[in-house]
Simulated scan of single mutants.
Amino acid sequence: MSEQNRLSIGDKAPEFSLLDADGNTVSLSDYRGRSVVVYFYPAASTPGCTKEACDFRDSLAVLNDAGFDVLGISPDKPAKLAAFRDAEGLTFPLLADEDKSVMTAWGAFGEKQNYGKTVQGVIRSTFVVDADGKIAKALYNVKATGHVERLRKDLGV
């Protein structure tokens, strides 16, 4: 994916409405007035994605207290997200972007390197959207392990 398709600080965050693990519609606009961490991950219940989700779970109270909500988005179906949430005790919304349209709009789907090969797929990415719906942080190609801790340091929480 070319750099021009990526979001930058100050850009308006692309709006979305997606189904959560229970089949309820969640929209980015539901969070207007609060800051929200939106992170994109390749697949529920895989080792790296589980590590990242559990790190967000374990940091959720601190992030919430500092005014940040968390949304996780993957191409999984709601039923798989529900199983993942229940197995790992996740307490923030997991959203299903089955057609990858939201990921594409956010620059989180496209060409990436996987074991030395160029493939099409989910680019593990994290964004902080401010209370006005603008991108405050845009982090692409993040590593699952240690990412949440670094994000907390960057946010001062």
Rank of each mutant, 00 (worst) to 15 (best):
S8F: 01
S8H: 14
I9G: 00
I9H: 03
G10C: 04
A13F: 03
P14L: 02
S17A: 15
L19Q: 13
L19E: 12
A21D: 15
A21L: 01
D22C: 03
D22S: 15
G23N: 11
N24H: 15
S27F: 08
S27C: 07
L28A: 11
Y31D: 10
R32Y: 09
R32G: 11
G33R: 11
G33I: 07
R34L: 10
S35N: 15
S35C: 08
F40P: 10
Y41D: 04
Y41F: 13
S45N: 13
S45L: 13
C49S: 12
C49V: 06
K51G: 06
E52Q: 15
A53H: 05
A53N: 09
D55P: 12
D55A: 15
F56M: 06
F56R: 02
R57C: 04
S59Y: 03
L60H: 02
A61R: 09
V62C: 00
V62N: 09
L63F: 12
N64I: 01
N64R: 11
D65L: 04
G67N: 09
G67E: 09
F68L: 11
F68A: 06
D69K: 10
V70T: 06
I73S: 00
P75N: 04
D76M: 03
D76W: 05
D76H: 07
A79Y: 01
A79Q: 12
A83I: 00
A83M: 01
F84R: 04
F84T: 01
F84Q: 06
F84K: 03
D86A: 08
A87C: 00
T91P: 00
T91I: 02
F92G: 04
P93F: 06
L94C: 08
L95P: 10
L95W: 08
D97R: 02
D99E: 14
S101K: 14
V102C: 02
W106T: 02
W106Q: 03
A108M: 04
F109G: 01
G110E: 08
E111K: 15
K112L: 14
Y115S: 08
G116H: 08
G116P: 08
G116F: 11
G116A: 10
K117D: 11
K117T: 05
K117L: 09
K117Y: 08
T118M: 13
T118V: 15
Q120E: 15
G121W: 06
G121H: 04
R124F: 07
T126Y: 02
F127R: 03
D132I: 00
G133L: 06
K134R: 13
K137R: 14
A138C: 07
L139T: 04
Y140V: 07
V142P: 07
T145I: 15
T145E: 15
H147D: 14
H147Q: 15
V148K: 11
E149M: 00
L151R: 07
L151F: 09
R152N: 06
